[in-house]
Design a protein around this nucleic acid. Sequence first.
DNA 1: CATAGACCGTACCGCCCGGTTCGATGAGCC
DNA 2: GGCTCATCGAACCGGGCGGTACGGTCTATG
Lengths: 198, 198
Amino acid sequence: MPVRKGATIDPARTRAAILETATPLLYERGLDGIGVAELCARLGISKETLYRHFGTKDGLVEAMLEARSERVTRWLAEAAEAAGQDPADQLTAVFDALQEWYDDPVFRGCAMLNAAAQHHVASVRDITARHLDGYLELLTGIAERAGAADPSALGRQWLMLVEGATVVAAHHDAAGAGEHARQAALALLPAARTGPRD
Amino acid sequence: MPVRKGATIDPARTRAAILETATPLLYERGLDGIGVAELCARLGISKETLYRHFGTKDGLVEAMLEARSERVTRWLAEAAEAAGQDPADQLTAVFDALQEWYDDPVFRGCAMLNAAAQHHVASVRDITARHLDGYLELLTGIAERAGAADPSALGRQWLMLVEGATVVAAHHDAAGAGEHARQAALALLPAARTGPRD
DNA sequence: CATAGACCGTACCGCCCGGTTCGATGAGCC
DNA sequence: GGCTCATCGAACCGGGCGGTACGGTCTATG
């Protein structure tokens, strides 16, 4: 069942393959750290193919970021879900998953934050903001199920711990960043059940 | 009292003036977002002068980041010091100062993090790492005076809150980011006095 | 008043970047 | 077998980049 009947080698599959291969390269070298020519050479495709699928280098970047944001958010959500019903367990699962990521030798921080830090095009900034939205939604959900008096505030504090741990792991020291953040996140939980002062 | 006797218009002062004027431009537009030609035009200097003082655009960038890191770290340390002896007050002063920064219309996140996210040159990454070192030292000092069982761990958690708040403020929503981070930081304090479980 | 050197303005250089074009190739559909 | 079209590879383009060179101006010093 080809996506386009007139197409020969299934353009949709080609597009997906380009995205998949380009993502780690753009992540490792930075969005402006690798040119279109070298990128295509590494991908084993011609520039014409790239431009037919994405129109622009920015188009590729946006599609890549969008896909990556969805992927990583879903990955964290599934880690939380797999941890069972206890909010504390879910939180622990999230930070454990993050620590795994930090320990990966290719870890270079959050791709969306990196992108927003260099490209201040509106579209990239929007993707980053929506990415943080996704994180916030996940964390706020946990806060709600934990019976927090102000779930959105607690979710936001957890979001800061997640992003702070990622920044510290990327630019300072990855060892134990997830664990330290997890301990802090868990410490916020009991105090928040019925408010800042019980 | 000229810095150099043979010099006419005091090169040291010129260099300082270049740094001072270039800093906000490079911060607002991004390191690669403004070229040397436009930069010099805005500074009102010739390219030759810039290159005589800094040798390279990267040289200017490094000098700028170094100066900015020192400035902002000293600014936070002074805010803490001015808050008196109570560690909780010092912590509050730090996050209040941060919130002021977030509310500044020119706020675009931490310049050192932004720089490290795009330029993965070793020198820039080192400056960023040392910048986080400076923050960590300040926060660990507060944790020690607060009688934390593990001051370096608590300092690191506070560092994550500081950086997380800055990231969230820059890329998601600045309103109340400092306050939320401050509440979280203060909530970590009592639990950490004698350890995670009292 | 002569010398040194900080500084300006502009032209210039080579390079690389994002993006376009084109002819050739080969796979799938009617 | 002919049509369509995705794809390749390579040549090409204009522009902007970081960086250099140079002639001229001004200012402090001795």
